[in-house]
Design a protein around this nucleic acid. Structure first.
Lengths: 133, 133
DNA sequence: ATGACTGCAAAGGGTTTGCATTGAA
DNA sequence: TTCAATGCAAACCCTTTGCAGTCAT
């Protein structure tokens, strides 16, 4: 691991994510801490979220379509992006077989890992669709 | 399905994708057809690739990090995005269990589908890494 | 004193959109 | 005749980067 220094900004960003339970995007983290910390820049938020994820302190969730999100829950679990509100949620899909293709070699391709991401509609947006039509 | 009209642009875009075997991004399709068809606009390429994918004539591949790609091979298969050159490749990872969570309901979440995308390093980039160090 | 880190603003990549016009049906 | 589709440019979202200055070590 490269040398890092402890900055107040980094700690504030970490604590902000730990206090949010809704898979915030970098911009949502920025918006959340901005009122009390107006001098922290958006670039610093992006840079530190990435660094904290590399350190394993938070989870960096990347899914197609929509901003990357971050999660205080670093345990292995699955996510769904709502196709209506574009937000990310934990979903409980038990017995998803764990694919053991980590670091294997497939016809010359070095596979370092994989992402599974679900898409669908969250409960709130389903409800809105029912009442708005 | 909504009403569509057959335009020459759409046919050119379709034929261009069918003639490319390298999972082109929308911009790569645009670049490919531009020399012979300089009047077709980038917006038209984006709009038609999406429409053709909705019609099931091509495959729209969405992975985290990097542009969406399109594929003439509409059979169900898996993709890997090279972390070095950012390109998308077919990979042969047999016996990936098919997850049967299509259209099921999990704690109020309507699951419409899922993406699995692998990441790693393609053969050419592995070779470059070996020789460049 | 060193260089990791910051804030700022600008640029970047990928994609979508508003609008007037065109052309397939 | 109609309205789906086009071309254009501008806007959009998300993210990264260059740079000069700052601050943890």
């Amino acid at each position: 691991m490269t040398i890092t220094r402890n900055t107040v900004q980094r700690e504030i960003i970490l604590q902000t994510v730990l206090g949010m339970d809704n898979h915030p995007s970098a911009d949502e983290v920025y918006a959340k801490l901005r009122p009390e910390n107006p001098s922290i820049s958006r670039a610093t938020v992006y840079r530190n979220l990435e660094l904290l994820a590399r350190q394993g302190k938070i989870l960096h969730i990347r899914t197609p379509r929509g901003a990357d999100c971050f999660d205080f829950n670093i345990n292995d679990h699955h996510h769904l992006r709502c196709e209506v509100c574009r937000r990310v949620f934990d979903i409980d899909v038990s017995d998803i077989p764990k694919i053991d293709y980590d670091k294997i070699d497939s016809e010359g391709y070095l596979i370092n890992g994989y992402n599974i991401s679900f898409y669908g509609i969250c409960p709130k947006c389903q409800e809105n669709e029912r009442s708005n039509i």
